[in-house]
Simulated scan of single mutants.
Amino acid sequence: MEGSRPTLSGMARSHLTLAALATSAVAGLDVAAAQPFSSNRHGDFDTALLTARDGSHYLVRVPNSDAAEAAQNAELTALASLSSGVRTRLPFALSSFVGQSVLRSRDGRPARRATVYEFVYGRRVRLERLYPGPLPESIGRAIAAIHSLPAGFVVDAGLPVVTAIDSLRSVVGVMDRAAATSLVPAALLSRWESATDDTALWQYQPTVIHGAMNADALLHSADAEDRIVGIIGWSDLRIGDPARDLSWILSAPSPDTVDQVLEAYAEHRPGSDVHELRRRAMLYAELELAKWLLFGMDTRDSGIVDDAVQMLDVLVQSVHGHIAGGLAHETGPILDVDEVQRMLDERPQVAFDHRSRSSLSE
């Protein structure tokens, strides 16, 4: 669930209203203090941080759109599947559901639910400040721990299972749609096609993945250990390509940081082919730009289209000299793809619509 140091922000529902909803949702909850809480979710939720009399902290959230409510429901399913036994295998904390209350709807729309969660402590990782040190090693270890979980609990919970073939089809679908716009440089299309034609690249074993991993999902400690203490945002928990959870790190400001994360990942997940993981991660990272272009086309927003075209042109220049050799581990970080993903996430309805079209699409 959401976590980090709380910050004050304006909210549609006051923190006092949210505190009252929380007390009705959780029997015996004695709230001593409440304050608005901003989690960089762009208004998707009204959120408050609550302090109980015993000193424990909780978050109460109310979604502000159907897409946000769908994401919240998906996360509740994911958190419920992460049993205490599963959680003992993870070297970090994650939240738990505490209670819910239904809000009355005065305009005939479906009622929203105020949901209360345990608060996860920690500071959000800042990708632009991620340099070699203990933190990248901890990130690699944390992601490896997720990917080492047994798949059974995800399957039992009815969460998505995405095979390697499903993932390849999804990638080809994005490429074909992007190519149809005639706005993607031919060199990039050729580069991506060479990756999809490489059968060895798609012969991997799907694992449990977070599914929405990025810097915002990671919480680290403020002490000298500087380690990952919490991971949030579990609404896309599934079985899928482990490279999905690693693509964001390629935008780190130092290549040494990327190497450190992947080396730690390999150390804590023996037998994983980090070279192939990195190649697919790079492909996914580059295709985020294609998704941004498609979003602009779908919404007929010429500003977004122009922005995407410009970024694709920069990408061509960034990988110049690597085109002929295709996606290889020597190809370094290209663009801030974490920022591109964040821009896409700011449009939750589009992301939700895309997921609903195919439960097997990553």
Rank of each mutant, 00 (worst) to 15 (best):
V154Q: 04
D306L: 14
V316L: 14
A285Y: 04
R357W: 03
S81Q: 04
L294I: 01
S105P: 00
H268F: 13
S24Y: 10
L159V: 02
Q205G: 03
D338G: 14
V86N: 07
V316N: 01
F153E: 01
Y131E: 05
A70P: 00
A52L: 06
R238N: 05
D345T: 05
G10S: 14
I146P: 00
K291I: 01
M213D: 04
S254E: 09
L344G: 00
P134F: 03
P63K: 07
D216F: 09
S105M: 00
L168E: 04
L183M: 10
S65T: 03
S247H: 15
R87Y: 03
S254Q: 10
S14K: 13
Q317N: 11
R123Y: 14
V162M: 13
G158L: 10
E2Y: 07
W202Q: 06
D345F: 08
N214D: 11
D46L: 14
V305F: 02
H147R: 06
D156V: 06
Y117D: 08
A178D: 02
R347I: 13
P36E: 02
A308W: 02
L237R: 13
P242G: 12
T47R: 12
L82G: 02
Y117N: 09
A80F: 05
A111D: 03
G233Q: 06
G28N: 14
N64E: 06
A78N: 13
V350F: 15
D241T: 11
E362I: 01
G296D: 05
A19L: 05
R269Y: 12
H320A: 15
V340N: 01
E225D: 14
P63Y: 12
V161P: 02
L335R: 14
S9T: 14
P160R: 10
D338L: 09
P242C: 12
